[in-house]
Amino acid sequence: MHLELPKMRLHSLKDFSKHYLMIVLSILTALGLEAWIEHSHHAHAGETANRQIRAEIQGNLDDVRSSIKANEALIAPLNELDTAVSQDIRDGAAAAVVNEHIRARRASFKLSVNWPTFASQAWDVAVANQSASWMDDVDLRRYSAAYADLRNASDWITHDSVILLNAPSMAALHTRIDLGAPVDPLEFVTVLRQMIHTSQEVQSHLHQLEGHLVHALAQEDAGKAHG
C-alpha cells in the first residue's frame, strides 16, 4: 500500500487537524479497500472450490449407484445357484445328481463385483491451495466427512472385503467343475455362500456410502431453504 500525502503549509492547529484527519481517512480507506479485495478473492475461491467439490461428489455418487445396479445383476445367478443346489441337498438328492445340476449351472459359479474408482482431485486441490478454509464451516465439515467415507470404503474393499472367503477352496472347486470331476455338494454350497456373502457385503458398503454422499449434497440445499 502506497499513499501520496499532499504537500501544503499548515497555518494553524485547525489546518493541522484537517490534514491529519485526511491522512487517517486515506489510510483507513486504502486498508478497507485492500481487505475488501482480499475478502472477495477468498470468497470467490471458496465458491469455486465448493462448486467443484459438489460436482466431484455427485460424480462419485453416480458411480456408486451404477455399481450397485451392476452388482444386483451379478449376484442374482449366485443366489439362483444356491437355491437350486441347496434344495437338492434338502431333498436328499444323490451327490451325482447334485453334481449334474452344478455342472449345468457352472457359468454362474463365479465371484464378480463392481466397485467404482473414486475421484478426489477437487477436494485435494481445495485443501492444498487453502480455498477449502474459505468455504462455509458446515459445508466443509460435511464434505470432509464424505471424503473420509470414500477413503474408508476404498480401504475396506482393498484389505477386508474377502476376509470371509476361502479363496483356495473356491479355486479348487472351479478346477474340479471345469474338469468334470465330482465335488462335495456341502462343500460347494459352503463356498458358494461365502461368495454370496462377500457380494452382499460389497453392496452393503456401497449402499451406506450412497447415503453418506446424498447427505453431503442435500444438506446445503436444506440450509439454503431455511436461510
Score class of each variant (00 low, 15 high):
Asp155Trp: 13
Lys110His: 11
Pro182Cys: 03
Asn99Ile: 04
Asp124Gly: 08
Gln208Leu: 14
Arg141Pro: 04
Thr117Asn: 12
Ala181Cys: 04
Glu187Val: 04
Tyr143Trp: 11
Pro168Met: 05
Gln194Leu: 02
Leu33Met: 11
Glu201Asp: 08
Val191Gln: 00
His41Ile: 15
Ala45Val: 07
Ala70Phe: 03
Ala107Glu: 12
Pro182Asp: 08
Val214Tyr: 02
Lys7Tyr: 08
Trp123Met: 13
Leu165Asn: 03
His44Ile: 08
Leu28Gly: 08
Val214Cys: 11
Ala222His: 14
Gln219Asn: 09
Val189Ala: 02
Leu165Ser: 03
Met170Asp: 04
Ile27Phe: 09
Arg103Ile: 02
Glu38Val: 14
Asp63Gly: 03
Ile163Asn: 13
Phe16Asp: 00
Val162Gly: 01
Trp115Arg: 10
Glu38Phe: 10
Ile75Asp: 01
Glu4Ala: 14
Lys18Leu: 13
Leu209Trp: 03
Leu179His: 12
Thr29Ser: 13
Trp115Tyr: 13
Pro185Met: 05
Ala95Cys: 06
Asn114Asp: 15
Gly46Lys: 00
Val127Asp: 08
Gln208Asp: 13
Gln219Trp: 09
Leu179Val: 12
Ala167Ser: 09
Val162Cys: 03
Asp184Tyr: 03
Ala172Asn: 02
Val162Leu: 07
Met8Asp: 14
Glu72Gly: 12
Ser40Gln: 05
Gln194Val: 09
Gln203Val: 11
His159Ala: 02
